[in-house]
Design a protein around this nucleic acid. Structure first.
Length: 566
RNA sequence: CGGGGUGUAGCGCAGCUUGGCAGCGCGUUUGGUUCGGGACCAAAAGGUCAAGGGUUCAAAUCCCUUCACCCCGACCA
């Protein structure tokens, strides 16, 4: 392809809408154009990269034995009523009516459709195991789309679903997908790592997220250098056996703390450190109020709390509800409250702490949680932070940021039961299939590749997903007819050797061409110009390393092949 | 949904406080000079100043309403 024949444009200025490097570069280099919040047009260059990522995913899925299918993006709401997720997904699902006034949704995911499909298709254990996948557009009405393709309202996802005769068999399918994911991200040039993850409203017992480490990532990842434990901050646990509290404990005593609403203010008013405050919060678990308590300097982790409560909707109660069931906001305490109380395990053995007195403007000091509070359950509900101890080996934990590019779930029978996806076993009994589901955000992965591969001049594409493997700059074309001929021949030769090449044949000054080539970021840059031709060759430059060499014309193809293979 | 901010040429922005001809840089077009890391000179095209309403002799500018977008938070396979 020649630049003069394309509609490709680059931007000199940074787009005002973009925050992170990969988003700025996607726009500046001309890979995507914003249509509206969270919606993007992929330019011809953008599509080329996208297709390369998709094909890597497709090849690895096929290699893992999965079968490609294509399901509709538009789905009848009935399927979602069957699974019960219509209400659960709620506002995050785009919904519309057809002219018959039937409610349709734009699929945010496809567990319902695929389970319904497989339930009709498979009836015998002989047809199992079976894994199907598709690469398709998903829709989610994100509250706040951001970072370009990272969190968009419409995006491309690869979603795969496995069906097995038993839990044990499902583990094998899960492992096959897990391994395929490792290969996929590696082939995309990504440094990704698998971490234990929360299953969220999709359900299921066990899951791993594949994270691309990047400071701009939206997720926190907890790591243990001692044993390799790694988990999403949403789910990460900690060892609390070492918690130290005062051994002495005076008589509980109310002290006035007028106007103190935050932990900091309360600590100041009582004259203790914030660590000695116990924070109490009322939550509504599927509408039922509960009280959660945690050390004042810690955050309650709502994902973990939701898991231990086993509810689907968990929200912080508003002030009115809090006052009605417990006590005044700001002076809320666990003592004497008639609600199920869930105490963070970090508070076990806590003595001489300060809680709200459930009296406006008062806190109680010298409280022993175990003596004064009727705890329904001791549970790990605090968010793990750097410096906490590993739940497995007690080493100190650290935190990194990551971009979630893939997620694998052991689903169990949540969907197969309600959609009656059952089969007849060899023993002639009817059994429910055990499912797994596996997603990769394809468009997000494309942007994540940039987030991990750029420098001050632009994108640095790995060869596997570079829009063109080679950018060929034609310089001095007006001065020297020979430059044009060499460019033309080289273009032809590269194409004949199966190497994608993009020729910058614009009537531009060399500086412009160099800048654009760096910005666009193809893996190898070849310059045809008088300078090198006089030495009998062309210049071959590796974008990533910056290495430049003049290669004799006869040796160019092998030299490029070698560079692309590295 | 709460808080903050921004809407002016394709892109990036000034002008708004204190009302008085619609501006700058980049990009685009034409001509010329230049030509190995985002050139220079000259000329030109390109605008419903987000939309609607109001105040005023006069509104990009002041007031009201609406919309869009961005940021923080809540939320989120």
């Amino acid at each position: 392809m020649r630049w003069s024949k394309t509609l490709h444009t680059t931007l000199r200025d940074e787009p005002q809408e973009a925050e992170i490097a990969s988003h700025k570069l996607l726009i500046r280099a001309g890979y995507v154009r914003r249509v509206s919040g969270g919606l993007y047009t992929f330019t011809p260059f953008g599509v080329r990269v996208l297709r390369k990522v998709e094909n890597i995913v497709r090849e690895e899925m096929n290699r893992a034995g999965a079968h490609e299918i294509l399901m509709p993006a538009l789905q009848p709401i009935e399927l979602w009523n069957i699974s019960g997720r219509a209400s659960q997904m709620g506002a995050s699902m785009f919904s519309l009516k057809d002219r018959q006034n039937r409610t349709m949704v734009l699929g945010p995911t496809h567990e319902e459709v695929v389970t319904d499909y497989i339930a009709h298709e498979i009836s015998s254990y002989r047809q199992l195991p079976c894994t199907v996948y598709q690469i398709q557009t998903k829709f989610r009405d994100e509250i706040r789309p951001r970072f370009g393709l990272m969190r968009a309202k419409e995006f491309i996802m690869k979603d795969a679903y496995s069906f097995d005769v038993s839990m044990e068999a499902a583990d094998i399918s899960y492992k096959a997908m897990y391994d395929a994911y490792v290969r996929i991200f590696e082939r995309c040039g990504l440094d990704a790592k698998a971490v234990e993850a929360d299953t969220g409203n999709i359900g299921g017992s066990h899951s791993h997220e594949f994270m691309v480490l990047a400071p701009s990532g939206e997720d926190g990842i907890i790591n243990c250098s001692g044993c390799g434990y790694s988990a999403n901050q949403e789910r990460a646990e900690r060892n609390t056996s070492g918690s130290e509290f005062s051994t002495k404990n005076g008589e509980p005593e109310d002290v006035p703390t007028p106007g103190a609403r935050t932990v900091e203010e309360a600590a100041q008013a009582v004259g203790v450190s914030p660590e000695q405050i116990v924070k109490s919060l009322v939550y509504l678990a599927d509408g039922k109020p509960v009280l959660a308590i945690v050390q004042g300097t810690r955050e309650i982790n709502e994902c973990k709390l939701r898991r231990v409560l086993g509810c689907s909707i968990l929200e912080l109660a508003d002030d009115e509800t809090t006052v009605k069931h417990a006590g005044p906001v700001g002076s809320l305490g666990p003592a004497g409250v008639n609600l199920p109380i869930y105490a963070d395990t970090g508070l076990k053995g806590a003595r001489d702490v300060v809680t709200g007195a459930n009296k406006e403007g008062f806190h109680t000091r010298h409280v022993s949680i175990e003596d004064s509070v009727t705890v329904k359950a001791w549970v790990d509900i605090a968010t793990v932070v750097a410096g906490d101890n590993c739940p497995k080996c007690k080493e100190e934990l650290s935190v990194q940021r990551g971009i979630e590019v893939g997620h694998v779930f052991k689903l169990g029978t949540k969907y197969s039961e309600v959609f009656d996806a059952s089969f007849l076993s060899a023993e002639r009994t009817s059994n429910v299939m055990v499912m797994g589901c596996y997603g990769i955000g394809v468009t997000r992965t494309m942007q994540a590749v940039i987030e991990q591969n750029f420098d001050e001049n632009g994108i640095v594409w790995p060869a596997s997903v570079s829009p063109y493997q080679v950018t060929l700059l034609e310089l001095d074309a007006k001065k020297d007819e020979n430059c044009r001929i060499v460019t033309e021949n080289l273009e032809k030769e590269l194409e004949e050797n199966g190497i994608d090449v993009f020729v910058d044949d614009r009537d531009e000054r060399p500086g412009v061409k160099f800048k654009d080539a760096d910005l666009i970021g193809c893996t190898v840059r070849v310059v045809v110009g008088k300078r090198a031709l006089e030495k009998g060759g062309v210049e071959v430059h590796i974008r990533k390393t910056g290495e430049t060499r003049i290669i004799p014309l006869a040796d160019v193809i092998p030299a490029i092949k070698k560079a692309l293979a590295e």
